[in-house]
Amino acid sequence: MMRADLKLIYDWVPQGARVLDLGCGDGTLLQALGRDKEVIGYGLEIDPDGITACIGKGVSVIEQNLDEGLTNFEDNAYDLVIMTQALQALRRPDRMLDEMLRVANECIITFPNFAYWRHRVYLGFKGYMPVSKSLPHAWYDTPNIHLSTFNDFERLCVDKGLIISDRAVGNGDHEGNWTTRLWPNLFGETAIFRVSRGKPAVD
């Protein structure tokens, strides 16, 4: 059973696409895409268990730290770059967005929405840093060093002149109604953006 946010991304990926999956975890998404949609590409991961799981599935996985960039991938070498739940853990999410849209014309990004109402309750009423299913860590040991909101990310895309071709949010354990468009910044626990370059790609 695929995680709900992965299922949505799965549906968005076109047949036969060349894909990079940044922070691919155990390779579930790439395996399904390869099997059902003839998608080819690579997963990038630094977690040893994730890498082992990918290799066991026959998913091509490369041990690589995303903070070191994507310099080993050529411009426009891929149709799509996917990054699920990793943006907020990067040193410079804005630069990663540039890198993703250098190697592909389109990317799909998911991240925990810091403005989700439960997070607001934590911070606004209780006065503590939010802890939830999507943000399970304490403030002192969290890998999530660049948390943002649905609105923040939208503004970054606008500032960069990028085209947001689709957006969605998910609630509670990623199993909510993904088509919710009402107040996503408040009710969406996980944000999903499909973004492409503002200008046509120059090959």
Binding site: I55, G56, S60
Partner: peptide, 30 residues
């Protein structure tokens, strides 16, 4: 198609000859 793993080891080049939990998980998994 390629998978790549860098195994943390103290044993230098000779590590490829020796047993190691993660090395065996990666190599054995493949």
């Amino acid at each position: 198609p390629v998978s790549y793993a860098e195994i943390d080891s103290q044993h230098g080049h000779d590590a490829f000859l020796l047993p190691d939990t993660r090395y065996q998980a990666v190599f054995g998994g493949f």
